[in-house]
Design a protein around this nucleic acid. Structure first.
Length: 664
RNA sequence: GCCGUCGUAGCUCAGCCUGGUAGAGCGCGUGCUUGGUAAGCACGAGGUCGCGGGAUCGAAUCCCGUCGGCGGCUCCA
C-alpha cells in the first residue's frame, strides 16, 4: 500500500482522518517527522501521513504495543517489575525484574496476553506532570530511574486497562489491533546493560499484522535453525572444535579444507587481477610491534601474549596490518610507486572472552582475506571504486544475485575530539595530527593552545568514499559518529537466502597507522609525504564466510566449492569394475569423486550420502555399462542418463566457470 | 567476564528429580542378501557417564569446585 498523505488542519483528530475501510490498518500518524497516536489532535495545518501497520514504522509500533501487552500480562501473573522494551527486525523484547521463567511458562503468559487482546482495551494517553508520574510508578525503581532521567512536565503515560506504562509512544489504538504474536525465547540480561548491573529477565517475542506473516516468520526461523552451520558442518564433516584442548579454534577436516582452499584460490585470483600482491607474514611477533601499532595498549587483554624463559615477550598477531607495514618499510617509495597493495589470507588470534565465542562466527583464531593498500590521498577514489567492483563480482559469483547494503561511517564533527585530525598551530605554524580525546590539546612544537582544526583530510577521504559509492550507483546510508577514530569506512552487508543481512566486507581508511610507523613516500617535490592506509577484507573471515555460505545454500554448495562433486554408486557388485573405471576417470579429470563399493542397497547408499550433499550422485549398472554412460542424480533429485565424456565436459565447465546452477 | 542452561558410545539422545556402578536409534565390524535411485536381515564390538573433590555402605544420579558447549548480556581492532 502506498503511504496515505492527507492535508490536515489544526485541531482535527488523527483518528477522524482514517478512511473507514482502513480502520484496522492505520495505527499512527506522522507529521513533520514526528509520530503521533491516532488519538492525538493535529498540532498544526499541513500534511500528515497515516502509518499502515504493514509498513516498517507500523510494524515497529505494533511490536512495541505487543511488548506492553506482554508486560501487562507478566505483571499480572508474576507481579514482575517491568523495566524497558525494545523492537527490532525480528520482534521485540521486554526486561523484567522477576523470578526466572522458562519457555515452558510461555503458553500461560501467551494465554494471559490473548485475554488482554480479546478485551480490546483502549490504549489511552495521558500527559502528566513529572511528580505525578513519579508517584504513579513509585513502586518501580527502574521506571523511577527512567522518569528521573527523561521526563519533564508534559511527559506521557499510557494506560491499558489497569496497566500503566511510562512511554513516549505511539501505540496502536487498542489491544485488539494485535492480531498475531508469539513469545520466542527468554534470556537474562543486566539492568541497562551495565556490566555489574542488576540481573533482569528478558523475554523475546514477535508480532506481525497478520497470522500468515507470523507463520512465515516462524517457518523461516525454524529453517534457519535447521540450517545452522554447526549442524551442517557436522553432517558434511567439514570442521571440528577440540573444545577442551584448543577452545575457540576451528580445525578443518579434509572436506572443510577443500571449501576453504577453493575460496582462498578464488580470492587469490581476484586479488591478482586487481593488482593486490600476495605476501606472507609471521604469526608470532615480539610485543614491541604491538606497542608501536597501538594494539597493545588497547587490546592487550584480548591478545595471546606470552613470555619465553629468557624473558622476551611475544604475542600472536591479532591483526595483519603491522606485518604488511613491516614489508612496506623495506623500501623507500616514490609517489610513482604508489599505490602499494599487499594482501594475504592472514590468520589472526584474538582471545575472545569465553562467553563471546560461538561456532565459526566468533572463533579465537580465524583467517581474514586481509589487504592493506598504501595510497596517496588522490588515489583513494580509484582504489575504493575498484574494491567495490571486486566485492560485487565476488558475491555475485559465489552467492548469486544477492542484495547488498552499504553503510558509510563518517566522523561526527560535533565531537571532533574523538578522532585523529590535523591541527595547525596559529602560533608557530606547525601542522600535526592529534586525537584530542587522548592527549592535551597543545602544539607539540611550541606548546601553544591556539590551534586551528583542519578537517580537510577527513573531508577528502569521506568525499572520495561517497563518490566511489555514487559512481557505482550504490545506495548507501551515512552514519555520523560511527567512523573509527583513525578514519571513515564503508561496511558492506549481503542478504542471504533466508533474508538475513550479514556484514561481510569492510573498507577502512586509516590516517593513524602511517603515523605510528612513520610511513612515507617521496612526492614530486622530493619531500616525504604520509600515505593513507586502506584496510580491506571482502569475505571478512573465511570462517564466518563459510558459515554464512553453508546456511545460505543449506550446505548444497555450488559444484566448484563442493567437497564431493560426484559420488559413484554401482547397482550391484557385478558393476563394481565399471563404477571404479568411471570414478578413476573422474579423478583423472580433476573431479572430486568418491565411490561406494559397500554391499548396501542402492536406496540406502543414496539415503546415507545425502547428508554429505554431493553435487551429483552417479548410478551405474548394466544399462550404463552397455551404453558407456552414467545415470546422474542432481541436487533436485532429478535423474538423467548421459554419455560419460559429455558429463565430464559439462561438469568441468561448471566447475571452472564457478557456475552456481547445476547443469540440469 | 556476567546470568541462565547443558556435558552419558563416532553422531543424536534416554536414564538423573525419587542413589544400588548404563540404554536406544543411526553409524562401525562380520556374515547372509546382488539389490535400479530417501534405511534388506542377523550377529557383534564400542562408554571407568567432561575433569577433580565431598557426604554416603554404595554416585551417571546428591553437594562443591573446575574445564568446556549452547542461549542471551557486555565486547568484537
Amino acid at each position: 500500500m502506498a503511504d496515505i498523505i492527507l492535508k490536515v488542519s489544526k485541531g482535527q483528530k488523527f483518528s477522524d482522518l482514517v478512511p473507514e475501510k482502513l480502520h484496522q490498518r492505520i495505527v499512527a500518524a506522522r507529521m513533520n517527522k514526528k509520530l503521533f497516536d491516532l488519538s492525538d489532535e493535529v498540532p498544526e495545518d499541513g500534511d500528515a501521513e497515516l502509518i499502515d501497520v504493514y509498513s516498517d514504522d507500523g510494524l515497529i509500533i505494533l511490536r512495541h504495543s505487543t511488548a506492553h501487552v506482554l508486560a501487562n500480562a507478566v505483571v499480572e501473573l508474576y507481579n514482575a517489575l517491568p523495566n524497558t522494551s525494545n523492537e527490532n527486525l525480528d520482534g521485540f523484547y521486554y526486561d523484567f525484574d522477576m523470578q526466572p521463567v522458562s519457555t515452558e511458562d510461555f503458553p500461560k503468559i501467551e494465554e494471559k496476553m490473548n485475554e488482554i487482546i480479546k478485551k480490546d482495551l483502549k490504549i489511552e494517553k495521558y500527559t502528566m506532570k513529572r511528580d505525578d508520574i513519579l508517584n504513579l510508578f513509585r513502586n518501580n525503581p527502574y521506571k523511577t530511574d527512567k522518569i528521573l532521567k527523561n521526563a519533564d512536565d508534559d511527559a506521557t503515560v499510557y494506560r491499558e486497562g489497569d496497566y500503566y506504562e511510562f512511554c513516549r509512544g505511539p501505540h496502536v489504538p487498542s489491544t485488539g489491533f494485535i492480531k498475531a504474536f508469539k513469545l520466542l525465547s527468554v534470556a537474562s540480561t543486566t539492568y541497562n546493560g551495565e556490566i555489574n548491573g542488576k540481573r533482569m529477565i528478558r523475554i523475546y517475542g514477535t508480532a506481525f499484522p497478520d497470522k500468515k506473516m507470523l507463520d512465515q516468520f516462524l517457518r523461516n526461523r525454524e529453517e534457519a535453525m535447521k540450517r545452522d552451520h554447526r549442524r551442517i558442518g557436522q553432517e558434511m564433516d567439514l570442521f571440528i572444535f577440540d573444545t577442551e584442548r584448543a577452545p575457540g579454534m576451528p580445525f578443518y577436516t579434509p572436506n572443510g579444507a577443500i571449501i576453504r582452499n577453493e575460496l582462498i584460490k578464488y580470492m587469490s585470483e581476484i586479488n591478482a587481477s586487481n593488482n593486490w600482491q600476495e605476501v606472507w607474514t609471521a604469526h608470532v611477533f615480539r610485543d614491541i610491534i604491538w606497542k608501536q601499532s597501538g594494539h597493545y595498549d588497547k587490546y592487550k587483554n584480548d591478545m595471546f601474549l606470552f613470555q619465553l624463559e629468557n624473558g622476551e615477550h611475544y604475542g600472536l598477531k591479532p591483526m595483519n596490518c603491522p606485518g604488511h607495514i613491516a614489508i612496506f618499510q623495506r623500501n623507500v617509495y616514490s609517489y610513482r610507486d604508489m599505490p602499494v597493495k599487499y594482501c594475504e589470507p592472514g590468520t589472526v588470534y584474538r582471545y575472545e572472552k569465553s562467553g563471546e565465542m560461538g561456532g565459526l562466527t566468533r572463533p579465537r583464531g580465524f583467517t581474514i582475506d586481509d589487504g592493506h593498500g598504501f595510497l596517496r590521498q588522490d588515489q583513494i577514489l580509484d582504489e575504493v571504486s575498484s574494491l567495490l567492483g571486486m566485492i560485487h563480482d565476488v558475491f555475485n559469483t559465489i552467492m548469486g544475485d544477492v542484495e547488498f547494503s552499504f553503510d558509510l561511517s563518517i566522523m561526527d564533527k560535533n565531537n571532533p575530539g574523538n578522532y585523529l585530525i590535523e591541527y595547525k598551530c596559529k602560533n608557530c605554524g606547525n601542522i600535526f595530527m592529534l586525537r584530542a580525546a587522548s592527549s592535551n590539546l597543545e602544539c607539540p612544537n611550541c606548546s601553544s593552545k591556539d590551534l586551528e582544526m583542519d578537517f580537510s583530510m577527513w573531508d577528502t577521504a569521506t568525499e572520495n568514499l561517497r563518490k566511489a559509492l555514487e559512481s557505482k550507483n550504490l545506495r548507501y546510508k551515512e552514519y555520523p559518529g560511527e567512523a573509527a577514530f583513525y578514519g571513515p569506512k564503508i561496511d558492506v552487508h549481503v542478504k542471504d537466502a533466508l533474508n538475513r543481512f550479514w556484514q561481510l566486507s569492510t573498507i577502512q581508511l586509516d590516517f593513524f597507522m602511517p603515523i605510528n610507523f612513520d610511513l612515507y613516500y617521496i612526492n614530486s617535490d622530493g619531500k616525504k609525504e604520509r600515505p593513507v592506509i586502506i584496510h580491506r577484507a571482502i569475505y571478512g573471515s573465511y570462517e564466518r564466510f563459510i558459515a554464512i555460505l553453508l546456511e545460505h545454500y543449506n550446505g548444497k554448495l555450488p559444484t566448484w566449492l563442493s567437497p564431493i562433486q560426484t559420488y559413484v554408486i554401482p547397482v550391484s557388485e557385478n558393476y563394481n569394475e565399471y563404477a571404479l573405471s568411471i570414478n578413476n576417470l573422474f579423478i583423472k579429470h580433476g573431479i572430486r569423486s568418491r565411490i561406494d563399493l559397500s554391499s548396501e542397497t542402492i536406496s540406502k547408499k543414496i539415503k546415507m550420502i545425502r547428508s554429505m550433499r554431493p553435487s551429483y550422485i552417479i548410478v551405474v549398472g548394466e544399462r550404463e555399462e552397455h551404453n558407456k554412460s552414467i545415470s546422474i542424480r542432481n541436487r533436485k533429485d532429478k535423474t538423467l542418463e548421459m554419455p560419460v565424456n559429455e558429463f565430464i565436459e559439462k561438469i568441468n565447465d561448471e566447475i571452472s566457470s564457478r557456475e552456481i546452477n547445476q547443469m540440469f
